[in-house]
Design a binder for these strands. Sequence first.
RNA 1: GCCUGGGUGGCGGAAUGGCAGACGCAUCGGACUUAAAAUCCGAUGGCUUAACGGCCGUAAGGGUUCGACUCCCUUCCCAGGCACCA
Length: 843
Amino acid sequence: MQEQYPFAEIESKWQAYWRAQGQFKADLSKTDRKFYCLMMFPYPSAALHVGHGRNYIIGDAVARYKKMRGYNVLTPMGWDAFGLPAENAAIQTGTHPRLTTLANIATMKRQLDAWGCCYDWDCEVTACLPDYYRWTQWLFLQFFKRGLAYKALAPVNWCPGCAAVLANEQVIDGGCWRCESPVQEKRLEQWFFKITAYAQRLLDDLAKLKGWPERVKLMQQNWIGRSEGALLEFPLVPRPDGRCDSAKSVGCFTTRVDTIYGCTYMVLAPEYPDLPELVRGLPQETPVRQFIAQAIKITAAERAGDAGEKNGVFTGRLVINPYTGEKIPLWVGDYVVMSYGAGAVMAVPAHDTRDWAFARKYGLPIRLSIQNPEKTLRLETMAQAYVEDGLTVDSGAFTDLPSAEARARMTAYAVEKRFGRAFVAYRLRDWLISRQRYWGAPIPIVYCQACGIVPVKEKDLPVLLPEDVEFKPTGESPLARCPDFINTSCPTCGRSARRESDTMDTFVDSSWYFLRYLSACDERQAIQTELCNRWLPVDQYIGGIEHAILHLMYARFFTKALYDLGLVGFDEPFANLFTQGMICKRSAKDGQLYKMSKSKGNVVSPDELIRKYGADTVRLYTLFIGPPEKDAEWSDQGIEGAARFLKRLWRFIYAHHAVLAAAKPVRPELATLNARERELYRKAHETIQAVTGDLEGAFHFNTAVARIMELLNAVEAIQLAAGARDQEKAVMRFALETIVLLLSPLAPHIAEELWVELGHAPGILQVAWPTADPAALARDQVEIALQLNGKFRGTMMAPSGSDRQALEDLALAQPQIAKTVKREQVLKFVVVPNRLVNIVVKS
RNA sequence: GCCUGGGUGGCGGAAUGGCAGACGCAUCGGACUUAAAAUCCGAUGGCUUAACGGCCGUAAGGGUUCGACUCCCUUCCCAGGCACCA
């Protein structure tokens, strides 16, 4: 054993050992005590930085810990390898995305190895290779067959930066999730997955996800946005010019039917499909058309940013309030959203903030239909809408009912009179999956003049991405300009036809990869149902909070759809989810704290740090940096602490190597230990207990590392001499072995090496995780806190398990108490056995 | 605006009703060294005291309790999610 901690040498040695021994090869045939440990697979950008590392280091620590606890652990890794950055790089440099992607994968794989993160590489999947995307296409066809994939003309989010459309989930604050360009609304024909068909199940089944963070479930719940209400038809008053309308009524969705008697007008969204027809030939046609043109032009971001200012125009048409028979004006307004509910709202200005503002602006009537419990609302004195529930007033047969009851009875009335029904609206929209870009899985569809939209035959999959393509983005897929790709024959009639030129959103690729790991090399089928049913749901999923809605909702949707298709026998993919916080670093430019990213120029490369300190140091610091679910600031100085700790551990074992080697390998006998030995022995067991609790429960790696550091501090406080008693040597050896074992999931290389130096056979992962001995944890004497009227007044020692009376007597006998307090003065003793005595006296 | 988290030394953080500040970073002092680095030892919330000690202190204010960083109420601030969603 050498004096200096030779991290570089031992790290490559043990990495080779793990690989050679196949330490992380899962035996898929055995599923008793199975543990599927999954980390979100990375997008192969240029290289990993220490911020990415948190995910893999936590995952690796969990996998190693579970292995030592005797689980059959599956930890696969793969690559979310399709995506825009590689294509954008190709536009700039001319290098094909396939080449840069594969080169990046090689780099990142090397980095993961260097970190000591171990995976079963036999299960590796790479989303951009035909043997993977072939099955992504196959799944698309299954969805298509079931009507879950459809093409529709719809207003979509267009990102001018990426020259492609985006799904709703990919629009953040009106901008593109990737490049932050303001998103524009366009009407385009696009492919969608019918995720809304699963809205209710996605919502309901959140309750099943006991092992998910509450905030992630809440975010999904908000995103799905379920609202219960009623769908009501307002009959159209016939046109003044006597011509006919194709629609007889205008439907609207409301959650507040109870306010209907206060409804004084109705508003349509500018995009309302029937609107042009409704106004055709009327004097209002021109102003309405102008208004529509203007409203549609402004982007979603502008609309959101300008919330508050509401604009609209009268359509010249009237509708009839089906409850009152009253004729009310029909308006068009830019505050009504087409894609929610029915694209129309019944306006109750007295009881809705937006309607209030609109009515005030355009001088529309305001009528009170809900009274507050104090019955103090007067229209003349109201400064804003009263939006709470209350009691109905001036509501005909429904007057004087509590809001909830009014809603129930009014909805029932609508059903009875056949002008409405109860309805549930969701905020969730269908998932727009087509992208006008090259580097993705082609959508396996063919357009035939005669047969229309025709799916590619399954036996003809994959639809291969052509190699030689002009990448420049124009808003049309580069594939559309590739005649060899585009021109094909119809799978049904054989006549000449065109291929779909759009590719799939890369979130499609990542919605099922965790299933493919179980059969990565299967050329006959996408998913091995039996195997998946035995290994899933995933026991522990680990990834970033940024996917709380995006990937995590898409993957849940896919799993449910595949369940319905009979391809898997479970309907939730991830039983337990852990979302780690991001690693941030101050920017050298402006001193602000940013998420580590290449664009901010604040990345720290692991390569250099591993060269300087070793992988174990980087791992230990990454785990110690703070609570893993919270964001943390990377500190170049902080890592020194982790480095010092490992060096101290190494040096201590080096310095006592001979003594320890000479020690008889005996288990310490409690009864024969002296006080000092007993203390260290207990500390070791306390550490086992604490660290196990930290790893088992909520992944408190930061406190686990702190406990192990404490144990080393206690060890170092004892100078073990060559002539020390056998018992002392035995306790010392036990404490050191405990440190090494507890450290092995966190800093595995040094743990393997020191385990061997302590005289054991190689292969610490095969060693059982230690358990704390209750007898060793027990104490004869305990320290008890003394309080006088709740204020701390020192401590005293007492025999463990002393009863209340004994503790009271002992407390009164303590000099600092006896000085000022006599028993007669005591009003009350508060005794917490083994912890505290509080003496309450009259003050 | 609504919904979630948070706010503790110079810094990252620990403690979830019972000795606030574990562990680490930084800083200061000392040892070793010709010197420096590395390493080791010690100090390190504020005020006060010659000292023992005392008082104050977990965003602010109030409450519950023998006892509150922890529970409750009010306010402020920060972060995240949703947002003309009817």
